[in-house]
Nucleic acid binder design. Structure first.
Lengths: 218, 218
DNA sequence: CGAGCAATATTGTTCAACAACTTTGTTTCC
DNA sequence: GGAAACAAAGTTGTTGAACAATATTGCTCG
């Protein structure tokens, strides 16, 4: 792959991992030096990530890590409901992606077992597994464009999670819910699974919005 | 706005208008000179359009105008059905975007009236109006992310249309169908409108796929 | 005619410089 | 003291040239 492709991926990972706080500004020269590339090269990577919604670019003021607002969260969940529920509703249990969903659920359950009460890092691993579950779910639709759109949405949502400092409440309740969605889909069919998934997403949105509201009070 | 922002927009418009045939390669130096900008600046614009799916970038082989395959068309229509039908289904007739839909239908009807049998340019105007109708329809959902995704989808689909040299069969049947979708939505409600829209999209997909199939024979 | 190789052209990346703009800090005036 | 005007500093935007890395073309030779 390209250097700038790898560069964009590396930056993407760092941002998702919370190396830079949402909203913080990224200096071109500083980051270019940090990665040992020229400013021009870094700019191309920046542009790619801006298109994906991870960075925000304001002319002559540079790029900052996106910092989703409440409106953004609402929008993201609306899109999630549409994409995920439709994908699941039209799917067959024999689809190979089902196995990836299964694996993601197992991984999440394992990490959640290990997690101490406030071990941010482990809870974030739970979050990663949860996200892998939903990415796999979307890939049930076999639609590259839908998958890509969803990937961008998920990355943005992750930034919203980073703003909240109680990762446990964000991830723990949903390990069991993922399992429920999967089991319902397998035993009671696509329609029941999609309904379960819709409930999941409504509740998840409520948790995130609640955390945001509390944040703005403080 | 930025120079590169304007540059990307200008390029975008030219591509959508068919200034470069789908699949044709775009030389960096030639285009940079044509627009009177440096290669580096052009590259940033290229990257933006690649992210939107309008250009295809292959390392060390440069960028070409995307040339949607049959699989791409199928994928695009799947995404269209999901986004458009959901948007319409959850909408109210009082939404301001309804007026934009109305205007687009009127414009399409007017252009179709003027069009001679094989006047490519006028039929393309009909296509633009048709597309404006669907963009307005998606904006019923008041979701920036959905709107953005749909905009990219529509641009890609337009490239598929450019590959087909019978613009009339592509656009003419759908002027009346747009009208039908709008009227059904207004008189018989969201659910009936969404059903009408779904039929529309299925038929439109069939027309495009048929044209592609005939193309591959020749 | 085809394989291998050299020549050519294009893209990938860097660097240095300057222009355009924003932000910050200072001065001035009320 | 506070607000407006202005100067200074810092960052981003864009350019042009240069060289490296890779793909394509054309040629030679068997």
């Amino acid at each position: 792959m390209n250097q700038q492709g790898m560069l964009a991926d590396a930056l993407r990972q760092q941002i998702i991992d919370g190396a830079f706080a949402p909203g913080s500004r990224l200096s071109e020269s500083a980051i270019a030096e940090h990665f040992g590339v020229a400013r021009n090269t870094l700019r191309e990577a920046f542009r790619a990530l801006s298109e994906q919604g991870l960075l925000e670019h304001v002319p002559h003021r540079g790029v900052s890590v996106a910092s989703p607002s409440i409106a953004d969260v609402i929008d993201i969940y609306r899109a999630r409901r549409i994409i995920e529920c439709t994908a699941l509703l039209h799917s067959e249990p024999e689809h190979p992606a089902v196995q990836r969903m299964e694996e993601a659920v197992v991984a999440a359950e394992a990490s959640a077992q290990d997690a101490l009460l406030d071990d941010t890092e482990t809870w974030r691993a739970v979050g990663s597994a949860n996200m892998a579950f939903h990415v796999a779910l979307v890939s049930l639709a076999d639609s590259p464009r839908l998958a890509r759109t969803y990937r961008d949405l998920a990355a943005e949502l992750r930034l919203a999670f980073l703003k909240i400092d109680d990762p446990r409440s964000l991830h723990e309740p949903f390990v069991r819910k993922n399992r429920a969605v999967l089991d319902t889909f397998l035993t009671r069919g696509a329609q029941a699974g999609a309904a379960e998934l819709e409930r999941y997403l409504v509740q998840s949105e409520r948790v995130v919005l609640g955390a945001f509201a509390r944040m703005q009070l403080a």
